[in-house]
Design a protein around this nucleic acid. Structure first.
Length: 429
RNA sequence: GGAGAGAUGGCCGAGUGGUCGAUGGCGGUGGUCUUGAAAACCACUGAACCUGUAAGGGUUCCGGGGGUUCGAAUCCCUCUCUCUCCGCCA
């Protein structure tokens, strides 16, 4: 959420920022300006009446103590109470409309973000590792997995439906190994605190991080009389840990990591990545979240991105890091780096992590502030998050990049301690 | 699922219709004292919004919403949450 005062004072900056996302914000901005003006006109009106009412009430109390007649004042107050109530209802309605309009606006891109219309205009910032050259045709994971007997697509469909999958044997073990490997790296070497949050969250949490009110169709909602949704990412519970709190500047930056399953309805993605594990309704992810002061937040974004990349470096998987252009940036985010891992079967780099700063956009929605000793007022924190990494896609990358001509898959050295020293997964006969 | 109790400032805890934003304690910050520290003493110690360059001024907030009243932390209704006991359960 953008600050209405900031919008008022910087309409052109806001307009330009929203346009760079490919939006036409004129009508919304006009609506916001109208509501904001009305709000600021009405508040002093109502407050003046309340003040009269307070003074008058004190007079009644004083007069009653002296045993005087107060009927007239009381009559006047009764009328004024009615007036106050009516105006307050109007004012509340204006505030509500303003809030809804503000919640619907996306974040402004950071000035360092390249301007562009679509993912085609994202810019590569670095690349690591060489895609391996195969002396045979590398298979896709949707062939390798079943041949190894570790991914079962059919039974996933039987149990739940399309875009659900069963991992078993070495597949399930590899997934768990990856989760542990990632959590160990981030907690022991990168300074994150491990958290196990609820996998269901309420709507206030989802408003806080920006999934609601606009993107309800991407979520799985619990049926019945519950205000609960399956988490689409651990970003939601981790960022909301400090919702409605004022933190001490000395405790910042706060770094959290969590493993959670993630649930997404993937509405509107029909026909995309229908084969394999790339796009599922349920997938595992180790998430990184930071709360930072505004001054440090872009340094923190750089280090968070490197923390995520480190997973791929240790696993010796080739990747590249892209900075998303304005047109491809998620609504809540001011700047995003996507990390893309090489997939031999597709002969291309595919997204495996997304590391972003929301600046104060989420903090304003979730009301997360910090106080600096001696400062007059608390300030909003900056929130950052990134996948560190998406487990399913990492598993795919290992299968495809580490496959051998005989159909077996080697296990990356860094992962072997988590696999009882096992060096390879062999195909079933 | 059944029965009961409760929700007040960072924390504990008073307050049952009229200067109550709210007594007191703890914690925190600053100061006095001390070579330093502790103790003791003194002062300060919430947030949001409106107005103002600022200093300042004003309004609101005692879990949320609604009601009664000239006036509500205090009375009524409702919702949410927490706790205790019973039942069930990993």
């Amino acid at each position: 959420m953008l600050d209405s005062g900031f919008i008022r004072d910087n309409v052109e900056v806001v307009r330009a920022g929203l346009r760079s996302r490919g939006l036409d914000p004129d009508r919304t901005l006009e609506e916001i300006a109208t509501l904001e003006t009305a709000r600021r006109r009405m508040i002093p009106e109502v407050e003046a009446l309340k003040r009269q009412q307070n003074t008058s009430g004190d007079e009644v109390a004083r007069a009653k103590r002296l045993g005087q007649n107060t009927t007239e004042v009381q009559e006047a107050n009764r009328a004024r109470a009615q007036q106050i109530k009516q105006l307050s209802i109007q004012l509340d309605s204006i505030k509500h409309q303003l809030q809804q309009a503000l919640l619907g606006l996306p974040n402004l891109p950071h000035r360092s973000v390249p301007v562009g219309k679509s993912a085609d205009e994202n810019v590569e910032v670095r690349r690591h590792g060489q895609p391996r050259s195969f002396d045979f045709d590398p298979k896709a994971h949707w062939d390798l997995g079943p041949e190894l007997g570790i991914i079962d697509f059919e039974r996933g469909v039987k149990l739940a439906g399309a875009r659900f999958t069963v991992l078993s044997g070495a597949g399930a073990r590899l997934s768990r190994a990856l989760i542990n490997f990632m959590l160990d790296l981030h907690t022991k070497e990168h300074g994150y605190r491990e958290v196990e949050p609820p996998f269901l969250v309420n709507s206030a949490s989802l408003v806080g991080t920006g999934q609601l009110p606009k993107f309800e169709h991407d979520l799985f909602k619990i049926a019945g009389d519950w205000d609960l949704y399956l988490v689409p990412t651990a970003e939601v519970p981790l960022t909301n840990l400090h919702r409605d709190e004022i933190l001490d500047a000395r405790d910042l930056p706060i770094r959290y990591t969590a493993y959670t399953p993630c649930f997404r309805s993937e509405a509107g993605s029909y026909g995309q990545d229908v084969r394999g594990l790339i796009r599922q309704h349920q997938f595992d992810k180790v998430e990184l979240v930071k709360l930072s002061t505004p001054e440090r937040s872009y340094d923190e974004l750089e280090s968070l991105t490197l923390n995520a990349e480190e997973v791929l470096r240790r696993l010796e998987l080739p990747y590249r890091t892209m900075v998303l252009c304005t047109g491809d940036l998620g609504p809540s985010m001011a700047k995003t780096y996507d990390i893309e891992v090489w997939l031999p079967s597709q002969k291309t780099y595919r997204e495996i992590s997304s590391c972003s700063s929301a600046e104060a956009f989420q903090a304003r929605r979730a009301n997360i502030k910090f106080r600096t000793a001696g400062a007059a007022k608390p300030e909003f924190v900056h929130t950052l998050n990134g996948s560190g990494l998406a487990v399913g896609r990492t598993l795919i990358a290992i299968l495809e990049n580490y496959q051998e001509k005989d159909g077996s898959v080697k296990i990356p050295v860094a992962l072997r301690p988590y696999m009882d020293g096992k060096e390879a997964i062999a195909p079933v006969r």
